[in-house]
């Protein structure tokens, strides 16, 4: 049995309500969960169930209307915007369905971005060396100077993955990482993602509509209408 003090990720009584033109909308209702380090967790559920909102709260990109978020011993509620930005940079990597690479930057430059924004490195050479190493690890050593428009979908997602990993985060959040890829390419990305997560002991949380992919994770959280319907360990 684990306590909230020793768990890697803790959400306690999370509510999220947002204002819209149609009035107040309750996105998440009374969400609580605790996860250990190194888990691979799939968040599943129908469209509009609040999966992305839940991920945003975990990433510190969205403040909950109520409840507590703790990640790696740090209460995100206590951080201001600058603090959240720094925390995210040091601890969280995010992979999006649409890749979200900067079109005017090469694969190497895209990957290096989190390190450039960080104060940890004093020289540019160090930053790009680290980025190059990570790109090599994801199999793109021959694409360092290519722009996103020159890369295939799978290659772009690899770059996105490299960018998410370059700062050695403690947790990777992936929102439908294979949603825009064909099956074969998607499978390659998932295998890469899982391998890297195992290598570094990172926690991996991904949103997916694919039941097979969800089944490959060590745990599934099913969201329906903003509430956790069930949580299953495989």
């Amino acid at each position: 049995m684990t306590s909230s003090d020793t768990n890697f990720l803790t959400l306690e009584n999370i509510d999220l309500s947002l204002s819209s033109q149609a009035g107040q909308v309750d996105i998440l209702k009374n969400i609580s969960l605790s996860e250990e380090k190194g888990e691979k967790i799939a968040i599943v559920g129908p469209s509009g169930s609040g999966k992305s909102s839940l991920m945003m709260i975990m990433a510190g990109l969205q403040r909950p209307s109520a409840g507590l978020v703790k990640l790696s011993g740090c209460a995100l509620n206590d951080l201001d915007e600058a603090g959240l930005t720094e925390f995210r940079r040091e601890n969280i990597g995010i992979v999006f369905q649409n890749f979200h690479l900067v079109p005017t930057m090469t694969a190497l430059e895209n990957t290096a971005l989190p390190l450039e924004f960080s104060d940890k490195f004093s020289s540019k050479d160090e930053v790009f060396k680290k980025a190059e190493d990570v790109l090599t690890e994801v199999g793109l050593s021959h694409r360092l100077s290519h722009y996103p428009s020159q890369l295939s979908g799978g290659e772009q997602q690899r770059v996105a993955l490299a960018r998410a990993l370059v700062a050695s985060p403690k947790i990777i959040l992936a929102d439908e990482p294979t949603g825009n890829l064909d099956q074969e390419t998607g499978e390659q990305i998932i295998q890469l993602l899982f391998r890297l997560a195992d290598q570094s002991g990172m926690t991996l949380i991904l949103i997916t509509h694919d039941p097979d992919l969800a089944a490959r994770c060590s745990k599934q959280i099913k969201l329906v209408d903003g509430k956790i319907e069930n949580t299953g360990k495989v």
Binding site: A82, T85, R88, R89, I94, H100, V102, P114, F117, A167
Partner: peptide
């Protein structure tokens, strides 16, 4: 792009 910068930790 700006949202991406923010998501990877760029300061305002």
């Amino acid at each position: 792009i700006i949202a991406t910068f923010k998501s990877v930790g760029a300061q305002r």
